[in-house]
Simulated scan of single mutants.
Amino acid sequence: MSSTPLLKLNNGVEMPTLGLGVYQSPPEETAAAVDTALRDGYRLIDTAAAYRNEKEVGEGLVRSGVDRGDVFVTTKLWLSDYGYDSALRAFDTSLANLGLDYLDLYLLHQPAPADPDPWTAAYRAAEKLLADGRVRAIGVSNHTPGLLSDLMERTEVVPAVNQVELHPYFIQGELREAHARLGIVTQAWSPLGGITRYWPHAPNGGRSVLEEPVVVEAAAKYGRTPAQVVLRWHIEHGLCAIPKSVTPHRIAENFDVFDFALTPGEVAAIDALDTGLRSGPVPDNIGLDTFGRR
């Protein structure tokens, strides 16, 4: 791995604390973004079957020339492939698309509380992949404390990671406390609060974390950008963040956050931006009938 700080998962596997996300990265721009990120020092790449750019992620991995063993690769299983056999088939498809022979982390992309049998069977398939050594760690995405509890009552392996919406407007304190009790690493999607800009109808729609005075003032103090301050806030909290970009200078900027630190007071001031309102889909409302197609 690179010099990126690492987080130890509950099975001993280490994961970089900062990576590149490729949600909404156009396929024609994804390979170049991944290549750029890896050349800049990133060692975590996060994709998903539903993003429809796994092949391009694999192409970027090859282009970069970085050794496969030095890159932590995550992809996710979509709801329409939940079920035991269907999940195993979908995993094989993702692995082929990526051009890899194993994954570092495999996540269930969404909970499916209205469809508990296929949801549970999908996670049991992930447990099988872990036992067979085809993935190094397994986990979930977008699960609340209650949904985690529901899933864990029916399965054996505690998720290593839960990837969720998390940014200064939605700091997920209760969920992070649950993760700490269970030994689950919290991974933040939309860590810069971008969802509040591209989903204008959301509860925090129209607001930008990067324009908040407390963030702007810290950026000026440290000679950094607001985005770097917010990513540093994630690191101070022990979170893993996966900001998305296809712009080379922003990819480099997002990674340049390991040589300064925020004070506890600055972290608390950014925490105080929390509204308690999520901007993404409500996990308890997700099901195969309402959210299952990609």
Rank of each mutant, 00 (worst) to 15 (best):
A90G: 00
Y42M: 08
L79N: 15
L95Y: 05
P118E: 02
A37Y: 07
W78Q: 12
Y84V: 09
P111H: 07
D85K: 10
A112M: 03
G99T: 07
G65P: 06
D40C: 14
P116D: 06
Y84R: 12
E59V: 15
D40S: 15
T74H: 00
R39C: 09
W78F: 15
Y84I: 06
Y51W: 12
D101S: 07
G41P: 10
L108D: 01
A114Q: 01
Y82F: 09
D101Q: 10
D40L: 10
V57P: 03
S64A: 13
D70L: 04
N53Y: 00
S94A: 07
V73H: 01
L88R: 12
A49F: 15
D117P: 03
F91H: 04
I45M: 03
S94C: 03
W78T: 09
L100N: 06
N53D: 01
D92Y: 01
V71A: 07
T75R: 02
S80N: 13
T36K: 13
S86W: 01
R89E: 13
S64N: 15
F91R: 12
R43Y: 11
L95S: 08
D81Y: 11
T93Q: 09
G99V: 02
H109N: 12
V62Y: 09
F91E: 06
L38W: 02
F72V: 05
A49L: 14
G65E: 07
D101H: 13
L44F: 08
D46F: 03
A96P: 07
T36D: 10
A37S: 13
L98F: 02
L100F: 07
Y106D: 08
V73Q: 00
Y102E: 05
R63M: 10
D115V: 00
L98R: 04
T75A: 10
K55G: 04
K76R: 12
D101T: 07
R89M: 02
T36P: 11
L88N: 11
L100H: 07
L98D: 00
S86E: 06
S86T: 15
P118S: 04
Q110F: 08
G83T: 09
L100P: 04
T93L: 14
G58R: 08
T75V: 11
P118N: 03
L77Q: 09
D70C: 00
T74V: 05
K76G: 08
S94R: 02
V71C: 12
D70K: 06
R52G: 12
G58V: 13
N97H: 06
Y84E: 06
A50D: 07
V57N: 00
Y84H: 14
D70H: 04
G69T: 05
A90E: 02
D85L: 05
L107S: 11
E59Q: 15
Q110M: 13
D117C: 09
V66M: 04
S80P: 09
P111Y: 02
V62W: 08
A90D: 05
V62S: 12
D67F: 10
Y106E: 01
G60K: 06
D46M: 01
T47G: 15
V62D: 08
F72A: 04
H109I: 13
V66S: 00
A49P: 11
G65W: 10
A112R: 11
